[in-house]
Simulated assay, not measured.
Amino acid sequence: MLQNAAQTYQSNQVTTATPADLTLMLYNGALKFIKQAKSAIEEKNVAKAHEASLKVQNILYELMSTLNNDYPISKEFAKLYEYMLQRTIEANVRKDLDILTEVEDLFVQFRDTWKEAIQLAKKQG
């Protein structure tokens, strides 16, 4: 019962979110899955680490597919996302914590900058 309520709440959150909020959710989700992958690697749980890494990769694919190419900055985002994707794949193959930390740091920077942009847009709007 409680699980269904949580799933309904989460589903409603996604359906009613703005595109900006959805991007923020993707960044936060990626950070959550990177932490899971790192924890699984430390626990020597290869399958769990692989599964979490695949989720990060899927988020990066989603971020790349939703870029608005009408803006020149989108090309720069695409390059960074592609780099992060390649590094995540490499980390998954090698089960490398250092590479995951590098990708995690990039996601933190994206997320924090995105949060600031949302706040500025709300103040101006």
Rank of each mutant, 00 (worst) to 15 (best):
Leu24Tyr: 13
Thr16Tyr: 11
Ser11Ile: 11
Met25Val: 01
Pro19Ile: 00
Thr16Phe: 10
Ala49Gln: 01
Val46Gly: 04
Ala52Arg: 07
Lys32Pro: 05
Ser11Gln: 14
Pro19His: 05
Leu26His: 03
Thr18Met: 08
Leu22Gln: 04
Ala40Cys: 06
Asn45Leu: 01
Gly29Thr: 00
Gln36Ser: 15
Ala49Leu: 00
Pro19Glu: 04
Thr18Pro: 13
Ala49Val: 01
Tyr9Pro: 11
Ile41Arg: 00
Tyr27Lys: 11
Pro19Tyr: 07
Leu22Ser: 04
Ala30Phe: 00
Leu31Pro: 11
Val46Ile: 09
Leu22Trp: 02
Glu42Asp: 10
Leu31Phe: 10
Ile34Leu: 08
Ala49Ile: 05
Ile34Gly: 00
Gln13Trp: 15
Ile41Gly: 08
Ala20Tyr: 10
Val14Asn: 07
Asn28Lys: 14
Leu26Met: 07
Gln36Lys: 14
Lys38Ile: 15
Ile41Met: 03
His50Pro: 00
Gln13Pro: 13
Lys48Asn: 09
Tyr27Arg: 09
Gln13Asp: 15
Ser39Ala: 10
Tyr9Lys: 14
Asn28Ser: 10
Phe33Val: 12
Ala40Pro: 03
Leu26Cys: 10
Met25Lys: 01
Gln10Asp: 15
Asp21Arg: 11
Lys38Cys: 04
Tyr9Thr: 11
Asn12Val: 10
Ala40Glu: 05
Val14His: 05
Ala17Leu: 04
Glu51Gly: 01
Ala37Gln: 00
Thr15Ile: 11
Leu26Lys: 06
Leu24Pro: 02
Asn45Glu: 06
Ala17Trp: 02
Leu26Glu: 05
Ser11Val: 11
Thr18Trp: 09
Ala40Ser: 00
Thr8Tyr: 14
Gln36Tyr: 11
Ala49Pro: 00
Ala20Cys: 06
Leu31Ser: 09
Lys48Trp: 03
Leu31Ile: 13
Pro19Asp: 01
Ile41Val: 04
Ile34Asn: 05
Phe33Asn: 06
Glu42Arg: 06
Ala49His: 01
Tyr9Asn: 07
Ala20Met: 11
Asn45Gln: 01
Ala37Gly: 04
Ser11Lys: 15
Thr8Met: 09
Ala37Phe: 02
Lys32Cys: 14
Gly29Cys: 05
Thr16Gln: 13
Ala49Ser: 06
Asn12Gln: 06
Val46Leu: 13
Pro19Val: 04
Lys44Ala: 07
Gln10Ala: 12
Phe33Thr: 03
Thr16His: 13
Phe33Ile: 12
Glu43Leu: 11
Gln7Tyr: 15
Glu43Gln: 14
Leu24Gly: 12
Lys44Asp: 10
Lys44Ile: 02
Met25Gln: 13
Lys44Pro: 09
Leu26Ala: 07
Lys32Leu: 05
Phe33Trp: 05
Gln13Tyr: 15
Ala30Leu: 04
Lys38Ala: 08
Ser39Tyr: 12
Gln10Ile: 15
Leu24Met: 11
Ala30Gly: 06
Ser39Phe: 10
Ala40Gly: 04
Ala17Arg: 03
Ala49Glu: 05
Ile41Ser: 03
Gln7Ala: 15
Gln7Ser: 11
Ser39Val: 13
Tyr27Gly: 02
Ser39Gly: 08
Ser11Thr: 15
Ala47Ile: 08
Leu24Ile: 09
Val14Glu: 06
Asp21Thr: 10
Thr15Arg: 13
Asn12Ser: 03
Lys38Trp: 08
Ala17Met: 01
His50Gln: 01
Lys32Gly: 10
Ala52Glu: 03
Lys38His: 14
Val46Ser: 09
Gln10Ser: 07
Val14Asp: 14
Asn45Asp: 05
Gln36Ala: 12
Lys38Thr: 14
